[in-house]
C-alpha cells in the first residue's frame, strides 16, 4: 500500500489544565488509519478514549503533535473550517443517541444539511437512502419519543451516514442498549464496513472490540497495543 492513510496522528497529546493542575489525558500517541478500516478503541474508564475520538472527529485539537486527514493538517484550522470539515468528513454516533426531540426521523437525519449549501432534492435523496440503509423507511415521520432505543440509534447512524462522511466515529454506541438490540447495531456496523465505510468505534467491551479487524488499546492516555486480527 503506497496510498496515503486516511488519517494520521503523530506525537499527539491532549493536556487539560484546570485551575493550576495539568492532566495529560492523552499521548503522546502516533498511528495511522486507512480508508475502509474497522478499528476498535479500547481501554478502561479514563484512559483517554473519548479524548482521542474528539480529536479524530475535529471536535477538539491536540495540545501538541499533528493530526492530518487525507494528508491535510487539522492543526491551525480556523473554527469555521473545523466545523465545515466535521460536516463533510465526520459522522458521529453517541452512546445516548442525541436525537433532537423537535424533529422527526427525517428532520434528525437531515441535520448535517442545515449547515451545508445543497439542493433540497439532494437532501431528500441522501436522507432517504441513509434511512433505508439502517432499515427505518417505515418510521420517517416519527418523533424520537415514539422510537425504541435501537431505532433511535439507527436514526443516529443514518444521520451520521447522510452527510457522506469519510469515517464514522462511534463512542460506546451500544452502551445504552440491551445485548440483543446492541447486537443488531453491531451487525449494522459490520454491513457498513463490508460496504467500505471506515469505522472507529470506542468500547470497553472486549467482545465488541473483537468484531473489529484492528484494536487500539489505551492505558492512561498511551497506546499500549495496536493489534490487527487475521
Amino acid at each position: 500500500m503506497t496510498a496515503a492513510p486516511l488519517l494520521a496522528l503523530s506525537q499527539v497529546t491532549r493536556v487539560y489544565t484546570m485551575g493550576g493542575s495539568r492532566v495529560q489525558a492523552l499521548g503522546p500517541v502516533s498511528f495511522t488509519i486507512d480508508a475502509g478500516e474497522f478499528v476498535a478503541v479500547t481501554g478502561p474508564s479514563g484512559s483517554g478514549k473519548s479524548t482521542l475520538l474528539n480529536i479524530l472527529g475535529l471536535l477538539d485539537l491536540p495540545s501538541a503533535g499533528t493530526y492530518t486527514i487525507r494528508g491535510q493538517s487539522a492543526m491551525g484550522l480556523h473554527e469555521r473550517e473545523l466545523a465545515e470539515r466535521r460536516n463533510r468528513e465526520i459522522g458521529f454516533i453517541f452512546q445516548t443517541f442525541r436525537l433532537l426531540p423537535q424533529h422527526d426521523v427525517l428532520g434528525n437525519v437531515s441535520l448535517p444539511f442545515l449547515y451545508r449549501d445543497i439542493e433540497p432534492d439532494e437532501i431528500q435523496r441522501r436522507c432517504l437512502e441513509a434511512i433505508q440503509r439502517v432499515g427505518l423507511d417505515h418510521r420517517i415521520g416519527h418523533r424520537p419519543a415514539e422510537l425504541s432505543g435501537g431505532e433511535m440509534q439507527r436514526v443516529a447512524i443514518a444521520r451520521a451516514l447522510a452527510g457522506g462522511p469519510a469515517m464514522l466515529l462511534a463512542d460506546e454506541p451500544t452502551g445504552n442498549l440491551d445485548q440483543e438490540t446492541g447486537r443488531g447495531i453491531l451487525e449494522l456496523f459490520d454491513q457498513l464496513h463490508a460496504a467500505g465505510t471506515t469505522i472507529i468505534l470506542v468500547t470497553h467491551d472486549p467482545a465488541i472490540a473483537a468484531r473489529a479487524a484492528r484494536q487500539l488499546d489505551l492505558r492512561d492516555g498511551l497506546l499500549v497495543e495496536d493489534r490487527r486480527l487475521a
Binding site: F92, R98, L114
Partner: peptide, 16 residues
C-alpha cells in the same frame, strides 16, 4: 447544552 454539542459535531460553527 447537549443539543448544542451535537450541532457542533454535525457541522455547526460558532456563528451558526
Amino acid at each position: 447544552r447537549g443539543e448544542i454539542g451535537l450541532r457542533r459535531a454535525v457541522g455547526a460553527g460558532r456563528a451558526e
